[in-house]
Design a protein around this nucleic acid. Structure first.
Lengths: 193, 193
DNA sequence: AACTGCTGTGAATTGTTCTTCACAGAATAC
DNA sequence: GTATTCTGTGAAGAACAATTCACAGCAGTT
């Protein structure tokens, strides 16, 4: 139908391909050589939560179905199935993907443009080493003459919720801020290597 | 002297702290409990190539020194040393850091602002799945009416050397482009989790 | 030789982000 | 209570990024 596809001969291979690629949907048989479909499902959801999984099985039982859905499968189809059945499921799940993608795309834009600015990166780094700082403290540390410049960037960082401010006006990293910063470190190491 | 410091009781701990932090310099004793200084040096250079290492030892031998420098240590100091000796070494190495930082900072700015744009990210994604594409092929796939818009972004990506173009005018990802893209995937998963 | 589609360039325009500056209320120091 | 420092707002403009448009060379077709 024009979809781009890729196949894996085992659960292990599926996991590997998923890790290095960017898949919308995985079609997974419950009975597979090596790692079971259920196990694979669990792993897959862990390493790539955005990839939707459709389980397929010849031995459909309620238990298996419930288990699969609980583990995060998006659909569950019993063999033998009409090809149209599968296509319907794929279309439905793809729509789901597109919707979620729209949402996270916004976040990604936001986050990346936050990180694109060196002053903001320096602020994040400062907060990482000091844990919590006041405005003027940072201004002096960053050696910037106009404090409103720093205020501007702090506002941006607050809006993308990488930092927050307590009642005492102190700024600190949010959990997300910390995660992003560690990812930034990885990136930096990639670049300098 | 106003430097921010942190300590580790073993090589293993040092590696862990380095992985999660952002250190300019590590002072490493050759004789340590558990992992040896030489081993630690190797690991450290692997996970954080930008962190400079100064080796310190009570049993200075030429072999050890040569080995350390070969493995990427920036300096090698024998005990007992005058504190001023150490400080001089630190200052020299720090200067080295500042210089390199200036260089990679440029790259980081470049790369991040490349990734900040959704069109450019889509181009990268396309190239990841298709391996190699021509201009108009992408234009149609991206559903953009003005092809010069795509040309503009392709130019940017070429400049930050995330993609390149062969004689046949086909565009494809560079090694760096692939690495950055996989890092982007990690980031995306962080955000959607 | 004329036509079509591809791959661009360069200039003008629009749009966004960043900086600067004038100002002001709240907290703290004297 | 007055001065000073801190924390911020909002508007104007500068700097930078992205889009649009007119055009042009080249390759292949008819």
């Amino acid at each position: 139908m024009g979809y781009q596809t890729n196949e894996a001969a085992s659960g292990k291979e599926a996991i590997e391909k998923t890790a290095s690629g960017d898949f919308d949907i995985a079609l997974l048989d419950l009975m597979m050589p090596g790692m079971s479909g259920a196990e694979t499902l669990g792993e897959l959801r862990k390493i790539s939560p955005k990839t939707k999984v459709i389980m397929i099985t010849a031995f459909a039982t309620v238990d298996n179905a419930v288990d699969a859905i609980k583990k995060g499968a998006s659909d569950y189809i019993a063999k033998p199935f009409k090809i149209e059945e599968l296509l319907t499921a794929i279309r439905r799940v793809l729509e789901e993907c597109r919707f979620e993608e729209g949402i996270t795309k916004l976040n990604l834009d936001y986050t990346l443009s936050s990180l694109a600015n060196p002053i903001r990166r320096n602020i994040l780094k400062l907060l990482q080493s000091r844990k919590s700082m006041r405005l003027m403290e940072m201004v002096r540390e960053l050696d910037i003459d106009d404090h409103t410049k720093v205020v501007f960037h702090l506002k941006m960082l607050k809006e993308s919720s990488l930092i927050n401010q307590d009642k005492g006006k102190s700024y600190s990293l949010t959990g997300e801020g910390e995660r992003i910063l560690s990812c930034l470190n990885i990136l930096k190491n990639y670049l300098s290597a």
